[in-house]
Nucleic acid binder design. Structure first.
Lengths: 233, 233
DNA sequence: TAGTGGTCTAGACCACGGT
DNA sequence: CCGTGGTCTAGACCACTAA
């Protein structure tokens, strides 16, 4: 405690976390106010503030003006999922990335897609199906709709060379996005594409993005059997 | 720019994000250094630093000493998943939470659990099966192993009243955790418990936690068909 | 209304890492 | 080496909110 030489915000962070872990401060307990902690630990209040702010963001503390800082009673753990471009995810594991464009068509969207993106049924959209491979094996089947109204440049992109996902990342930044995960059964067609059998359990990721309420894209990403998404908490 | 009245770190954050979104600053571009931005926006360098630090944490910027700050070329999106206690997740949606303990037994773990937790095959563990309900319907089936060596107090807990998950949150804080998500098929037993049919696609969440390399618990959480986990990005 | 966290400032020094 | 971000400090004022 007082004997520590280094008094940077990280050491304060770690010290507070230690006291929580050792149950010196229990869930629900009020901890000393910033000024007191700063005195105890021999640093400026701003330093303590930085440490406690991060701990609150990590879910370990609840802070409220006037009420003080308390150890979270139900430490909501926040898993941070990095959602990289698929190519980088595969290459990052040392596998060879492959990509195949299966279909592109320009047409009006299905009612479901309209609802997702919040666009009219007459929207001009690009429908893209593609397959991503890892070491030559099917890895993920992507079905995507892109709003041509919002991103007109997409019609000039060569989507046989660069995946729609990657093109969009570079050319159409979004301001808002939704992502969801679930489990589904492979249909006949999906099974064929992913080289598995109908009825196999597939991990499904659905993403929709907007630029200031203008729908950009809605995608359905179906991963081959055996896929696991993981993270540290 | 100069006309803005409010110059807090959030306005700097938003202004920089705006310049990225409007492609005034494109992926890979170097942006002005902190001192320059502080001058431009009429605030202290610390304020700019705070804003840019958050943007870097959000994945929009890459920052390196001496090399300066650049717009991220592949904006890795970070989805923040809140992993609350199941009871709160259900109650938070306004549904009635129910819980039933199916089985507890004290025994040595399976080889798979040993591998997950990194413990010996002779460990003293508690094996717990339970079912969580939302509005009376099966919601999640939990199968959990808890190390009695690491958390001896668990044997005195009344797990018919409080779920092991919730008990652990209150009494056994962890320092490290893994979480993974995948899709599996329901077995006969699992189908019966979740009141569905064998072969249904189920969303599986697996969690393992440690306290300084001492394994605490490993859990397999099987969600009823139709479960979707989602998040904003 | 008063106490607590939230933030800003100006200045300083440090640490990393291009050149 | 030396420029850039990373951090600390002391002090100040503000904003929220419990009492």
């Amino acid at each position: 405690m007082s004997a520590s030489e280094q008094t940077n915000w990280q050491s304060v962070h770690d010290e507070v976390l230690r006291r929580i872990h050792t149950r010196e401060w229990k869930p629900g307990d009020q901890i000393p106010k910033e000024v007191e902690l700063a005195e105890q630990l021999g640093c400026a209040r701003a330093t303590v503030n930085r440490a406690l702010r991060e701990l609150a963001a990590e879910g370990f503390l609840d802070r409220r003006r006037k009420a003080g800082t308390r150890v979270a009673t139900h430490p909501v753990r926040r898993a941070k999922l990095d959602i990289p471009v698929i190519r980088l995810e595969i290459e990052g594991r040392g596998q060879k990335y492959g990509y195949g464009l299966l279909l592109t068509e320009r047409r009006t969207p299905t009612p479901e897609i309209c609802a997702n993106l919040g666009v009219s049924a007459k929207s001009d959209m690009l429908h893209i199906s593609s397959l991503h491979l890892a070491d030559g094996k099917p890895y993920m089947f992507e079905e995507r709709w892109v709003s041509i109204d919002t991103v007109p440049e997409i019609v000039d992109a060569d989507l046989s060379k660069i995946s729609a996902n990657e093109w969009l990342v570079l050319h159409a930044p979004y301001t808002k996005g939704d992502i969801s995960f679930s489990a589904v059964l492979a249909s006949e067609l999906e099974a064929k594409i992913l080289r598995t059998h109908a009825g196999a359990p597939l991990f499904l990721m659905e993403r929709t993005t907007w630029e200031n309420d203008a729908g950009i894209t809605s995608a359905r990403l179906l991963f081959a059997p055996g896929y696991r998404m993981h993270s540290a908490i």
